[in-house]
Write a protein that binds this DNA or RNA. Structure first.
Lengths: 210, 210
DNA sequence: CTGCCGTCATGACATCTGTCACGATCTTTG
DNA sequence: CAAAGATCGTGACAGATGTCATGACGGCAG
């Protein structure tokens, strides 16, 4: 039996959804919250398995509530249900610990499936959501990996990593126990090897691909 | 009825999985591929709804096959089934169009559920996979957004965007039709406003949050 | 052994970068 | 109108950065 908590400020929508979900034999609704603050309180009281969380709510929005609840009760699964597929909401919710993100327009059978999936610890994202999220990932492509392995030496890789963290020559030299001159030589070779112009471009390259 | 294609080089595993999946009333297996090349060919011939794709395969690995198939048939849903949860595989697969990523250790009932979910266009990621993916996202937090809107002026925002692309002062000046001196003044104010030290840190900041 | 390569280092030079002081517009606000 | 702020510009200075030539040391393959 999966224990559910609903968090949504639109009363009719929430009650309607509650009725529909209660018809499923393996779902029980243990609480309903009309804002983020209440959601946090009720979560502590009822310890649900899954929370259906709206984003736009008074007092404390769904994103912030997600962050707090996930920090306090990391084992509770949060499924965000939003009217909007705004990029910021999506990314923040997921980074704050939400496991799923679906639009409110999702048909109920799909929604109940999603609840079951999420309750087992799997993530589920809606059809329009998934591409947005995945396109933001930055994997190392084979070309760039070869660039790192063939063009740069061991030392140079250490240097460019520090470069990617915004360190200047002095700091790099101290970290690696080198002279500043040596660091500058290394960077010089990195730049010509990767065909970049200056340390800023190298730093951006490092942040993107390392 | 969901049409399935299995791609895996381990014969016993693939045949076993095929038998188990064939027992589901709403699943049909329309083809089995022993490597990436065959997977691409068979996809063209049988036009499955969902492909279960292994990562490590001879001739053409699952990641590359995913890329090619998704480019050619964007409507076909690909669910990656891997023994490993290596970050690179995950990120690349998802960016190349895979909708799901599960470990082979996933129990069959969960797997069939995932197939149904993915066949409807939703994404599903395994419990160990999801956190890895979501932690790589870089949403703008409210703090940083306020930093941009309150601390930086319109012009300064234009400048820092170009900075984030690795431009030097000369290029920024030309792009915005300014003198180099003015650009340097703007950058100077950006650095103090965001409490950064030099253009490299500002560029990294821009790439992360803009 | 000898040459090659990576590593580390130095000095010198030109250029780029960041800061400061100062002044000029122009628009907005009281 | 007057004050305030954003914008643009200049000149000057110190420091950071990129490049080059040069040399030393150690390891490794032929």
């Amino acid at each position: 039996m999966i224990h559910l908590l609903l968090a949504d400020d639109q009363v009719e929508y929430r009650k309607g959804l509650a009725e529909l979900l209660a018809m499923e034999p393996d779902l029980t609704i243990v609480g309903q919250a009309e804002n983020g603050q209440r959601a946090i309180t009720l979560t502590g009281q009822h310890q649900p398995d899954v929370i259906l969380m709206d984003v736009r709510m008074p007092l404390c929005n769904g994103v912030e509530a997600t962050r707090i609840i996930h920090q306090r009760y990391p084992w509770i699964r949060i499924l965000v249900l939003s009217t909007f597929d705004e990029d910021d909401y999506i990314c923040q919710s997921l980074q704050f610990g939400a496991l799923g993100y679906l639009l409110k327009s999702t048909p109920v059978p799909q929604l109940t499936d999603a609840i079951r999936v999420v309750s087992q610890g799997c993530s589920q994202l809606g059809p329009t959501i998934a591409p947005k999220v995945f396109s933001q990932l930055n994997p190392i492509t084979e070309t760039q990996r070869r660039a790192i392995e063939n063009v740069l030496s061991e030392r140079e890789r250490e240097v460019i990593q520090l470069l990617g963290k915004g360190k200047n020559n002095k700091e790099i030299a101290q970290t690696l126990h080198l002279s500043q001159g040596t660091v500058r030589n290394h960077i010089s070779r990195i730049l010509s090897g990767l065909e970049l112009r200056d340390r800023t471009q190298a730093a951006l390259w490092a942040q993107k691909y390392l």
